[in-house]
Structure formats: C-alpha cells, structure tokens
Design a protein around this nucleic acid. Structure first.
Length: 345
DNA sequence: AAGGCGGGGCT
DNA sequence: AGCCCAGCCTT
C-alpha cells in the first residue's frame, strides 16, 4: 500500500471533521458561495452566519440583488465593514444579470474580471459550487501551506505569494475538489489556527515542516516592519564643572517643552556653536553613538563631551540652562538626553 | 496597540 | 510591479 497523498489525507479528514452544515453549504449555488466568500473575507464564520441568512432572505437571487436599491444592499451589509465590497457585490450581480443572462461565468478568467472577485474568490466559486479543479489561497490556506512547507518570507511578498499559489494548485486534487477546498479552509480555521494550533488532530501533521522543527507559530512570517526613515544629529555636551548646557525645545513638535542638548547638523558646527555661546573649548571627547527610535523615524545621535569655560559676561536666557548633574533641577528631559547625561557624571 | 484579512486603486 | 487602504476583529 502506497503512502496517502496530501489531498487524500485532507479529504479523509473532511469526512470526519469538515464543516458541512453552514448555511451556504445547503443547496449550494454559485450565488450562495460567492456572497458567503465575500462576507468571509472580512469576518469570521460565526458572525457571517447571521448576515448571510438575512442577506439571502432579502435578496435570494442574483436578479433581486441586481435590482435592489443600493441602500438596501448597504443596509444588509451594515456592521460588516469594507462597504465598497457591498457595492461591488451589486455591480457584479448587475453584470451577471445583463451580460451573462443571470448565470455565473464558469471560467477563472471571466470570474476574475468581476468587480470584487479576485483569484482566490474565483477559485472558491469554481471549486465549491461547480466542483471544477481550481485552487484557493485565502488566509487560512496560506497559513496551512506556509507551515506545512516551512515557507520563508512574508506571504504578501509577490515572490512568496507566487510560490504559495503554485503549491496550492499542485496540491489540488482532480476529484472532490469541492470537499478538498472546504477542508483546507476548515483546517486553517479550526486546527492550524494562528496561535495555539492543534497539531495533534491535524491530518497532515506527520509531514509538516514547521512542526518538525517545532517552530509552527514562526509561520507565516509576519509582515516586515517598514524600515524607519533615518535621521542623524550631533549633540554636544558642553560641560563646565558639574553642569551641562541644555536648552528648552519649543512647545510644539518633537519633545515639546522638554529640555535637550543642542542639535547640530554635523561635527563641524560644534566650534561655531561654541563661539556663538561664548564658550571656550578645552577638551573634546567623542562618546558612543546612540540610536533612538521614534514611532515614525530613527534618530542616530552622535554625542561629544566637551569641557568648556563659559564667557565671564555670559548672557542668561530663559530657554537655556546649566543643568547640574550632582543636584539636578527638576525638569523634563528628552529620553535620550537623560541617558546621555547619566554617562558623563 | 498592533496586525490580519482579499481585492482595488494609486504610484 | 509594489504600496497603501478599508473597517472590524483577535491577540
């Protein structure tokens, strides 16, 4: 006896555990599958059940949907979100009504052209309602495949997505595609869940690569964090005895109202700045660079510790202070500034 | 508080 | 092609 194929295992699982009593699985039609798929794109099954039933009661046919007032369609959609989908739903119903004599097209190419129907939804309609061999790749299936094959990379990335589609199509059986498709979605939704997957009851656990390496929840890889824009600044710590020169930031913008070190564009500006402030530089020592991450950018701080002698007739300014490191004044400091100050005591 | 979801629309 | 968005829900 030869080893069962992936699809055979999935189909065997479907017999026992697959969902067969959902409202859109009764007296299956392309219309029901389509409406349910659009709803399921954004909402979980338990919620969709009620919306779906109400929707079908009010608009039981493509024709009724095509001819309904838009307000009626949106009313039935209220609470589901993504309202352009409700509008697309009606647009597509009108196209089917007028250009396809009320019958769903039965090819991938034609289905994909319908507004709101992409490759995955088209695959679902073909396989679930027409038992045509077509693959789907919704979030559930993506997760199952990413884990089973330990797919590296973010599934939203085009290269990774192409790979997943290829695998999804290769695995799709020639018989009982409808059951296979339903089973894949069910496994993703009930077994191979995002967190706490129940591998022990999974029909394909033995060959699952992610499970093999005990790294199930490492897959699918998360969306890579966008690299934050990088900015640089030079911060001189002008030090005289136990005090460092700080200045107060304006009341708007970054670090509003907090006290900070001077922020200079480059090392070359230090001397000029010191001169302006009437500071005589005695000794200069570069400190270790400091990276500070904001929500929207990353700031690399190049600090320099500079011993200075202030001018005799130094002018006091309200926005300027000699901050005593031994007996610190009580005032607000920008976080990285606070950190820098602890290093020079 | 962040991230996922399938497709559309913009660059 | 790659990026961002929608609106609600889960984690």
């Amino acid at each position: 006896m030869t080893e069962k194929s992936f699809a055979q295992k999935v189909l065997a699982w479907y017999e026992q555990h697959g969902r067969k009593h959902l409202p859109w699985q009764q007296d299956i039609t392309p219309y029901k599958v389509w409406v349910s798929e659009i709803m399921l794109q954004q909402t979980q099954v338990s919620t969709v059940i009620n919306y779906f039933s109400r929707f079908m009661e009010a608009l039981p046919t493509i024709k009724s949907l095509a001819e309904a007032p838009q307000d009626e369609v949106l009313h039935l959609w209220t609470g589901l979100g993504y309202y352009t989908r409700a509008r697309n739903l009606q647009k597509t119903a009108q196209i089917i009504q007028h250009e396809y004599q009320g019958n769903f097209p039965n090819t991938l190419e034609a289905l994909i052209k319908l507004p709101g129907v992409g490759r995955s939804t088209a695959g679902a309609i073909l396989s679930l309602s027409m038992n045509q061999r077509a693959a789907i790749l919704d979030g559930n299936v993506k997760r199952v495949l990413c884990r089973y094959f330990a797919i590296e990379g973010y599934p939203g990335d085009a290269k990774v997505s192409n790979k997943l589609w290829q695998l999804a199509e290769d695995l799709t059986p020639y018989e009982r595609v409808n059951h296979y498709t339903q089973a894949m979605m069910d496994i993703g939704a009930t077994v191979c869940t995002r967190s706490k997957p129940v591998c022990l009851i999974c029909p394909v656990q033995t060959d699952c690569q992610a499970r093999k390496y005990a790294s199930i929840t490492d897959y699918p890889h998360p969306k890579p964090k966008k690299e934050l824009p990088k900015k640089q600044t030079v911060m001189p710590l002008f030090k005289c005895q136990n005090s460092v020169l700080l200045y107060q930031r304006p009341n708007i913008g970054l670090w509003a109202g907090l006290w900070s070190l001077p922020e200079l564009g480059s090392y070359d500006e230090i001397e000029k700045y010191a001169q302006q402030q009437g500071l005589q530089m005695i000794k200069l020592k570069p400190l270790e660079k400091l990276i500070h991450t904001f929500s929207h950018f990353q700031l690399t701080i190049e600090p320099y510790l500079i011993e200075v002698i202030p001018a005799i007739n130094e002018i006091a300014e309200s926005k300027k202070i000699w901050y005593n490191l031994i007996e610190p004044q009580r005032l607000g400091l920008a976080a990285p500034v606070k950190k820098l100050l602890t290093k020079v005591i």
